[in-house]
Design a binder for these strands. Structure first.
Lengths: 200, 200
DNA sequence: TTACAAAACGACCGATCGTGCTAAATTCGC
DNA sequence: GCGAATTTAGCACGATCGGTCGTTTTGTAA
């Protein structure tokens, strides 16, 4: 068994902590509740991390890693150009919809939580959001280079609009619980794609 | 002095609680910290409310009232049609930028906080967001009726896109602290206006 | 000014917070 | 299977949580 016992436990803790953070935020994940969730004692759990902030940073990093695997990697396996941009959006919506354990985009939750705060967690979060926006812009630039998108299209503006569609989708889906949130978001993104295309 | 002493204190509490809620969320506003902020004792403060949830509901209502006064009312004093839609957006961005005391749009914070939760606070929040979106849609419909906007424009889609622009602005402005967040949001909204106009 | 009501206080409840310490249990290399 | 290293538990700490007392101060109307 290559992964040591400690490492196994560590992964379990981060997994549960990530789920909890999606519900109550990173500050809201208490050591006691997390210990109960994982079946460990409070002190036994705490021994894996030097402080609560260190735990928060590791949970954030876990989220970033999962986002990379579940969204970015599949997208890079898609042909450059408009198809890749499309898939970027689809995978992003899939991420936002989440699954049984992880409901909603945790980055959006953390964005609200850490706007106006300072510290290492915010810094890491800001960097991850910049990276994500850059990834969108690169995909858009690729579509421009392929001749799929207009040459005068601003990738930054496209990214801004796409993020907006996704954020409103998350709000409509998770808070308002509107049934037609998904098709509406897709329709608006289709319109964004349409007006981004180069005239034939 | 018509406003009784109790009412004065009550207003003071709600004012400070609103500021704090903008920073740490409604759940994050603790009775103790709020008491210290207002210079009251914990029990003296708590006596004004039956429970913490009742306090949260009143704080939310206070936010709704202020939004109505600072955003909705000035907009209704603006000529119907595209000018009113423009002003709606400008006033909204102004609200999001906030002032010394209230930094950022508290509704966005609460949207993240109460997505996935249940209860009276969430219900009230959902209703307020629906009301706000309806107000946008009415303004857009007015612009269509005036002949400023295309007749085939979907007010719901316009509202969705406008909310998206505003949400990304808040993220870029408050979390990322990007200096050009405001002009970018305005430019994207200008483009939205441009493609909403009826062809002359 | 007096009498009553409204408002604020201080002390306290059980529970939980993050974080130490030490000791026991477990895992792991040999 | 033994010894060393790692992992976990037990316990305690000061602080704070939302909330409830009974009491005292303050505002207000007659």
């Amino acid at each position: 068994m290559n992964p040591s016992k400690g490492e196994q436990t560590r992964r379990l803790i981060l997994d549960r902590a990530l789920t909890m953070a999606g519900e109550v935020g990173l500050e809201g994940v208490s050591i006691g509740a997390l210990a109960e969730e994982t079946g460990l004692s409070k002190s036994g759990l705490f021994a894996h991390f030097k402080s609560k902030e260190a735990l928060q940073l590791e949970v954030l990093q876990e989220a970033i890693t999962r986002f990379t695997v579940q969204v970015l990697q599949p997208v890079l396996a898609t042909p450059r150009g408009e198809p890749r941009v499309r898939r970027l959006f689809d995978k992003y919506l899939e991420w936002i919809r989440g699954d049984d354990a992880r409901r909603g985009c945790i980055f959006q939750k953390l964005t609200s939580e850490y706007a106006g705060r300072d510290g290492a967690v915010r810094d890491r979060l800001v960097q991850s959001q910049k990276d994500w926006r850059d990834a969108i812009m690169r995909a858009v630039q690729g579509a421009i280079d392929e001749g799929h998108f207009r040459r005068d299209l601003d990738p930054a503006v496209f990214a801004h609009e796409m993020l907006g569609i996704a954020m409103v989708f998350q709000s409509a889906w998770r808070l308002m619980r509107e049934a037609d949130a998904l098709p509406r978001a897709q329709a608006i993104f289709d319109a964004l794609l349409a007006r981004s295309r180069s005239v034939p």
